[in-house]
């Protein structure tokens, strides 16, 4: 098996993504009641937020509801000033809360059977691989799965992931490492 980098090395490698200032400005304007800013924010972030909600909750319809809840909250903020350090982290946190609230209301654990990954091209082999990796991802605990998504696909720093999940930074890095490690192990087991 490939060596998995330790959490300290991952922490050192994590850099905040560029362009967050522009996103923060959009979010600020949307919270202040700007309709165009809200639409711009939707165009910039909806796909990432929806995919994150899908990875966290496992239900496409519930993911759509969570995204809608968050954007309605922004639209209904009525100009309330919030101190926002990272716009992306703020949005992912809001979506995560919406998904967790939905799951709490359902009060039962559901089998995650949604397709969490798709192939980037039309290659049938790649599509089969996407389905296989999705199945293995579904077996990961949600807290590991969300760390993997936020680091790998949303390109967030471990500090931001920690803020979203409400855990120390080291724990966020450790969750990512464990998630990737477990997935690799599962894939290795399945490939034999």
């Amino acid at each position: 098996m490939d060596p998995v980098p330790c959490a300290e090395a991952l922490l050192a490698a994590a850099e905040p993504v560029a362009g967050d200032e522009a996103l923060a400005a959009l979010l600020g304007a949307a919270l202040a009641g700007g309709v165009e800013a809200l639409e711009g924010l939707y165009r910039a972030m909806a796909a990432d937020l929806w995919a994150f909600a899908l990875w966290r909750g496992g239900d496409p319809e519930a993911a759509s509801d969570a995204v809608q809840t968050v954007f309605c909250r922004i639209a209904g903020a009525r100009g309330t000033k919030e101190r926002i350090r990272s716009a992306r982290a703020w949005l992912f946190t809001a979506v995560r809360r919406a998904v967790v609230d939905q799951a709490r209301r359902r009060r039962r654990a559901e089998e995650l059977d949604a397709q969490l990954l798709v192939a980037s091209d039309d290659d049938p082999e790649r599509r089969a691989e996407a389905a296989a990796v999705s199945r293995r991802l579904a077996r990961l605990p949600p807290r590991l799965r969300e760390a993997v998504y936020l680091r790998h696909f949303a390109d967030l720093s471990f500090r931001e992931i920690a803020a979203i999940a409400g855990v120390p930074t080291f724990t966020a890095a450790s969750r990512y490492r464990r998630g990737i490690e477990k997935l690799r192990r599962e894939l290795q087991g399945g490939a034999r």
Binding site: A51, L117, V118, A119, R126
Partner: peptide, 9 residues
């Protein structure tokens, strides 16, 4: 995740 991406909304 090489060659794979999350689905679109």
């Amino acid at each position: 995740f090489e060659g794979l991406r999350p689905p679109s909304p």
